[in-house]
Design a protein around this nucleic acid. Structure first.
Length: 280
DNA sequence: AATTGTACCTGTCAGC
DNA sequence: TGCTGACAGGTACAAT
């Protein structure tokens, strides 16, 4: 479940450890996670490259390497990127080990093996489709109430479905969508296009606030997430609705309800997030 | 064209 | 005790 705040935290924890390091080699345990190029070429290309910088785009983590290469990770649900000493035990969920020139390692660990790894030239990043099709960064200048209003208008899906769509807005996942909708007082099953200007403004503010708080508390560790140093985040203690179905609402005490929307478990307060009549 | 459903995975937990 | 099935959910792709 690494979403924007988790990937941002991983980037922040890895940045000081990786920048300036040279890659001495790589060991691949599960080649199918490497989407391009083929694992053998992936390993030979990585050798000798220096890590120049790290960045995040949506839920993607990018390692900018020397000679114009970029190593791209998507952690999907259970992926982890860990900076560890070479002597640390390697468990069965470690699928890629990158050997660094100081004897430390960067390991890709993924219980469910949904994660994806790419090594491409900086100029060819748009060949990674999911990355190329991302909508604006929610904490960037392009994400304004007007933008949100515009992309929700004319859409025939629920607000929950729309906010999970990475092409509309990059980086939100199930946790932060549910939390944002709760803060904005909007029912997740509302038709996206039915939101009023005032509701869109509230939702815009809620998304920005929830994401900033998520980053400030170093991400949400519900089950799998840890940062680049293996440390859990703290935002799970501040969740108002996610994972709290059947429990009392923190605002009004009503019992939180759980439904399935856009294929995801969705928790909301029936009192604070009323479902108004939508005109279909 | 846009939206919905399913596959991809493995571990955990409730229920029997 | 040990089994079964539901569930966890991001994205690509198939189906509608």
């Amino acid at each position: 479940m690494p979403e924007l705040p988790e990937v941002e935290t991983i980037k922040n924890t890895l940045l000081p450890k990786l920048v300036g390091r040279r890659i001495m080699g790589a060991t691949v345990h599960l080649p199918r996670l490497i989407k391009r190029p083929a694992a053998q070429e992936f390993v030979s290309l990585l050798g000798g490259k220096e890590v120049l910088d790290l960045s995040r785009r949506g839920k993607y983590l990018l390692l900018h390497l020397s000679e114009g290469y970029c190593l791209v990770f998507h952690l999907r649900m259970t992926g982890r990127l860990l900076y560890l000493p070479a002597a640390a035990p390697v468990d069965k969920h470690t699928h890629l080990i990158i050997h660094l020139d100081n004897g430390e390692q960067l390991r890709f660990h993924d219980l469910r093996t949904f994660g994806t790894i790419y090594l491409v030239r900086e100029g060819e990043l748009d060949q990674i489709r999911g990355l190329a099709c991302l909508g604006p960064e929610p904490l960037g200048p392009q994400f304004t109430p007007a933008y949100l209003k515009e992309v929700l208008a004319g859409r025939r899906t629920t607000i929950k479905g729309a906010l999970l769509n990475q092409e509309l807005l990059a980086g939100l996942g199930n946790i932060y969508v549910d939390e944002s909708l709760f803060r904005a007082g909007i029912h997740p099953a509302r038709q996206a296009a039915s939101l009023t200007g005032e509701e869109v403004a509230r939702l815009h503010r809620a998304i920005c606030e929830v994401l900033k708080e998520g980053i400030r508390y170093r991400g949400t560790s519900v089950r799998d997430y840890v940062d680049g140093e293996g440390k859990a985040g703290g935002f799970q203690k501040r969740l108002a609705v996610y994972g709290r179905g059947g429990q009392p609402c923190v605002k009004c005490g009503a019992t939180l309800e759980k439904v399935r929307l856009a294929g995801r478990g969705s928790v909301y307060c029936p009192c604070c997030q009323p479902l108004k009549c939508d005109t279909k």
